[in-house]
Design a protein around this nucleic acid. Structure first.
Lengths: 190, 190
DNA sequence: GACGAACTATGCAGGTATGCATAACTCTGG
DNA sequence: CCAGAGTTATGCATACCTGCATAGTTCGTC
């Protein structure tokens, strides 16, 4: 994988991630991924000797990294600043897909008992994101004993609002939970 | 479909719903469903002339009805009584599958653009459930202007907590959001 | 008990997915 | 220029799924 190969490989993984967002893990095939990426079938077992399971796992890892990068800055902020950023991110991402694509990590979490490795990666990502939200809550003066449960509530609400938003073809759920989560933090502020 | 047929047909739909909960829509095949239900392939196009799309749609509708029935009583209750019931329902349902099966309606919402009909049904169900939660909030003395957004927050958090709980193989997310949602309603009570 | 409808069982065609093998091409370094 | 690793192209075996057709069976009704 000297030069061109790396780009092709990355495109295949990205295509798989996109398919997962739109159709879920179960309906995401390797042939779809290479077709979207404009790669040939020969590339598949060259780059992914572990077969489909490896591709799905890498697509999940890519999604985790993409979202984590996008949100890495929030740990410096308080809830008043961070929450609108996160909600706006998902608002745009869901809307620009015309309400066809959600969160690839949630898709991995809901996949079958094949792809157990990808599901485990999704779990680790959720833990990490809850940790980041806890930092935001600390920055916001939320009492320490409430921080873990409020952080879990926030992440759950965001993931759930994306699902409901897709079904409703609307960003309203995301906007509503943003308002309420913010009000909650304000009420808890010491 | 005089007598035996109705039971067989119902078993097939239920098997499809269960597969959706465990593997998502995309990985749920008609052959899986009849295998689980102990039916023969001949039954398929006899009962479901609309093919796979019809089966998925009916499985989604069955899930909607099952959950709606289970929660129909909460509209008489206040949040203090209703929230533990709903969370306990999902806590048990997820745990008894050994963290393999989530919400079939969420699975339908995250399915591909085939099964658009099932996705629409999921959207209607979410709307209906938000309405039921709104009634609970009215019963609990929550200010009227906050009721829609708090209801959306509650449903989003429940759906999201199920997803995260599956990934973590834990019921803790569900328990944590229950605590926080209850605290939120208490703080809002007039 | 016989008829007819509902139901079940099984086979086939077409399409597609995975996993692998083999061959051809490309690009780099010597 | 050329040797060789890296990369791409293509074909094949196997298996699965859908959709349909056809035949056999069971059951209620008359």
């Amino acid at each position: 994988m000297s030069r061109a190969g790396a780009a092709t490989r990355a495109r295949v993984v990205e295509s798989a991630m996109e398919r997962m967002r739109r159709q879920g893990v179960g309906a995401t095939s390797m042939l779809d991924a290479i077709a979207d990426a404009g790669a040939s079938r020969g590339s598949l077992y060259h780059y992914f000797p572990g077969g489909r399971a490896q591709l799905i796992e890498e697509a999940t890892a890519l999604a985790v990294q993409e979202y984590t990068d996008a949100f890495s800055l929030i740990v410096e902020l308080d809830a008043e600043q961070a929450l609108p950023l996160v909600v706006e991110y998902w608002r745009i991402k869901v809307a620009e897909s015309d309400f066809e694509a959600g969160c690839a990590v949630a898709a991995a979490a809901l996949g079958g008992s094949d792809i157990a490795a990808a599901r485990a990666k999704a779990g680790e990502a959720f833990t990490s994101w809850i940790g980041m939200i806890e930092q935001v809550l600390r920055n916001s003066g939320v009492p320490a004993d409430r921080i873990p449960s409020v952080a879990t509530l926030a992440l759950s609400a965001i993931e759930g609002a994306v699902v409901i938003g897709l079904a409703h073809r609307s960003v309203e759920p995301m906007e509503q939970i943003a308002v309420e989560l913010l009000e909650l933090v304000r009420a808890l502020r010491a």
